[in-house]
Design a protein around this nucleic acid. Structure first.
Lengths: 191, 191
DNA sequence: CTAGCATTTGGTCATTCGCCCAAGTCGAAT
DNA sequence: ATTCGACTTGGGCGAATGACCAAATGCTAG
């Protein structure tokens, strides 16, 4: 195998810990992730957790922000070149197909939202992400002539997260029907 | 004071424990509620928790279901006498004024949704509540001529819960503007 | 008055928790 | 070859956890 410098190995361990944390937050819940199960999942000795991170909370914060940032980046609608509101909606609702409510990604989002309630530092980071995403959606909506783009984006994103939240309880609802109804939120002004 | 029979005192203790549990789930998160803080909050000795309830999980389940059932009952729109979709919306969005996202009630809902993910017994109870509420809303929508009442109810309720979820992070959004946009979901067929 | 009962008490059990640290390993630079 | 520094190991700290139980308490029915 490739010989690793100790610095490289250290970075590798850090990444494994962050990945394991994102998994376990979704599986067990934010406050139920412990240093020992975390280390075991990462395939690493428990002592390493507090060598690479100041505290368990700090690790969880970094893991959640990094993982969520990645998801948001690839879910964000293209900032230009979209003029049809229906196309905007399709881009967003593709998330409804990708995430089923009970999957690690959906649960990580909800868990982090709740953890933000009890961690001001985390709240600021997540609120900034949410606002960026909302404004991105609003910009596209404005470009395609939808009235009140900012408020519409707020409702649209809320409906998406809320639907995923409910889907965790009840998977029987039809995503296709939901998409149809969501289209009412982005009416085309002309015609 | 009124002399209490031991049975009455027992029932009283049970209620205090349930009330304390609902508070603490919101404050600390579902998995972070312990028997000892629970007993302290209820003004009761720790040993009583496992006398009145089979387990801590069982207590939390009962507390969440009872508290949520009470909220749902008083938020549900009147099942008859409403023919204007705007009035339906007003009845529902009144919850947006009552709950600010970071209040105990909102947090209890989200926490319980997440706990349901890891507790099949709880999930069935909460899913039934959600479906009852959705169908109640759908029935009123159907009565006032809104197209696709079931799917509309799903989206509407999702938007409400999602908005509360996001409000916990960012209280800067305008509830009034949100209500305006939500009106698009319930278009009047006539006119 | 007494026996029976639900309730309450105070304590203990093994386990797990976050965090810390002295000692050890090992590649890189001198 | 030796030193340096980053990384890792294994153990241990006090505190908290869920659950359990024998003994005490006190109301109530006989």
């Amino acid at each position: 195998m490739a010989p690793e410098t100790s610095a490289e190995r250290g970075r590798h361990v850090r990444e494994r810990l962050l990945a394991a944390a994102a998994e376990l937050i979704a599986e067990r819940g934010w406050t139920a992730v412990s240093t020992r199960v975390l280390a075991e999942r990462a395939g690493v000795r428990p002592g390493l957790v507090h060598y690479h991170f100041a505290s368990l909370q700090d690790l969880l914060r970094q893991a959640a922000v990094a993982a969520m940032g990645r998801v948001v980046a690839e879910t964000s609608p293209p900032s230009e070149g979209v003029d049809d509101p229906a196309a905007v909606l399709d881009a967003l609702t593709s998330a409804l197909d990708a995430y089923e409510g009970r999957d690690p990604t959906s649960l990580l989002f909800i868990e982090t939202y709740l953890a933000s309630t009890r961690d001001p530092e985390l709240r600021e980071l997540i609120a900034a992400m949410l606002n960026d995403f909302r404004h991105g959606v609003a910009e596209v909506l404005r470009g395609s002539g939808v009235a009140e783009p900012e408020a519409t984006a707020v409702v649209l994103v809320a409906a998406l997260d809320g639907y995923l939240l409910h889907k965790a309880l009840d998977v029987s609802t039809s995503t296709a029907a939901v998409k149809t109804v969501l289209r009412r939120l982005v009416p085309t002004p002309s015609r």
